[in-house]
Every structure is written in structure tokens, then in C-alpha cells.
């Protein structure tokens, strides 16, 4: 187990702990804050895996934008601030069984498939330079499609949130 493995496992434990607390906490604002911890741990994992650019994009988009958007949603729906026992539904034990079964299946498959695989990782493969030339040469068509998708999502969100352009009365 090299130093890279140790750092990766520790950051993974941070991400997993944040995720578990996010889905089990009884306070809805705390769930958003634990989500920040999980995303931060994952960004650290990307850094350890030498994917610097993806790590900073993760921090910018997820921690910066998505969590703020979720907090806005929490406030706009007037969610109960403070401890609330009604956040989980009654079938949480069924959900736990399904989640444990999923974890067991995936972990067994992964360990059987890649149990002893070992390879040294060299830095430099995830710089903005390398990723940028990849995106704008090989992957330029998906890049443009992603921009159209974002435009469609923007228009859709505007149409959904405006009240004056909905269906007329009697429709």
C-alpha cells in the first residue's frame, strides 16, 4: 500500500462519511453541508488521482454552484429548519436492504475483477493543457451538444418558473 493509496483511502472515508451523514441526518440544512464534505473529499480524491482540472471543476461547480442552488431550494420551499423526524419515509429499512445488496454486489464484482491490479500513476495526465486539447480536438462535438443541452435546460427552467406563460384557464 503506497502513500497514494493511503491518501486515497482516507479521502474516500471522508467522502463516504459525508455521504452517509447527508442521507441520514435529521436536519435538512445539515444534509446540504454534509454534501459539501462529500464533494470536497471527492475533489481531494481527484487530486490524488492526478486529475487536477476535474478536481477544480468539481469544487467550482458542485461545491460552488450546486450546493448553493440546493440551499436556495431548501429556503424557497420553506423547509422546516431544525430537527425534523419526518425526513425519512417509513420504508427506510427496505431502502437499507436494497442499498446493502447493491453495495455487496458492486464491491464483490470490483474486488473479483481488479483485486490485485497495480500500476504506477504518473502526474501530468489531468492538467488543463492536456484536457483542453482533448476537449477541443477529439470531443468537440459532444462539447457543442452539451452547450445546446445547457441552453435547453435554461429555457426549460425559465418556462417552468414563470407563472404568466402557463396554460390558460379552462384548458
Amino acid at each position: 500500500m503506497t502513500g497514494q493509496d493511503v491518501a486515497l483511502v482516507l479521502l474516500g472515508v471522508v467522502a463516504l462519511g459525508g455521504g452517509v451523514l447527508c442521507v441520514t441526518t435529521r436536519q435538512i440544512v445539515h444534509a446540504a453541508l454534509w454534501l459539501v464534505v462529500a464533494f470536497g473529499g471527492l475533489a481531494g480524491s481527484y487530486l490524488v488521482l492526478t486529475a487536477e482540472f476535474v478536481a477544480w471543476v468539481q469544487v467550482l461547480i458542485y461545491v460552488g454552484a450546486v450546493v448553493v442552488l440546493l440551499l436556495f431550494g431548501i429556503m424557497l420551499t420553506r423547509a422546516p429548519i431544525g430537527r425534523n423526524d419526518g425526513l425519512d419515509s417509513e420504508n427506510r429499512w427496505v431502502a437499507l436492504v436494497v442499498a446493502v445488496a447493491t453495495a455487496a454486489l458492486l464491491v464483490t464484482t470490483v474486488v473479483l475483477g481488479f483485486g490485485g491490479a497495480h500500476k504506477d500513476v504518473k502526474p501530468g495526465g489531468g492538467s488543463a493543457d492536456a484536457l483542453g486539447s482533448s476537449v477541443f480536438r477529439t470531443w468537440v462535438l459532444p462539447f457543442e451538444v452539451a452547450s445546446v443541452l445547457l441552453l435547453a435546460a435554461l429555457v426549460g427552467a425559465i418556462v417552468l418558473s414563470r407563472t404568466d406563460i402557463g396554460a390558460k384557464d379552462g384548458d
Partner: peptide, 8 residues
């Protein structure tokens, strides 16, 4: 690096 850690 062992690939099994990030995968798990």
C-alpha cells in the same frame, strides 16, 4: 496505485 480502492 491499486485500482480497487477508488472502485470500492
Amino acid at each position: 496505485m491499486h485500482i480497487v480502492y477508488p472502485a470500492v
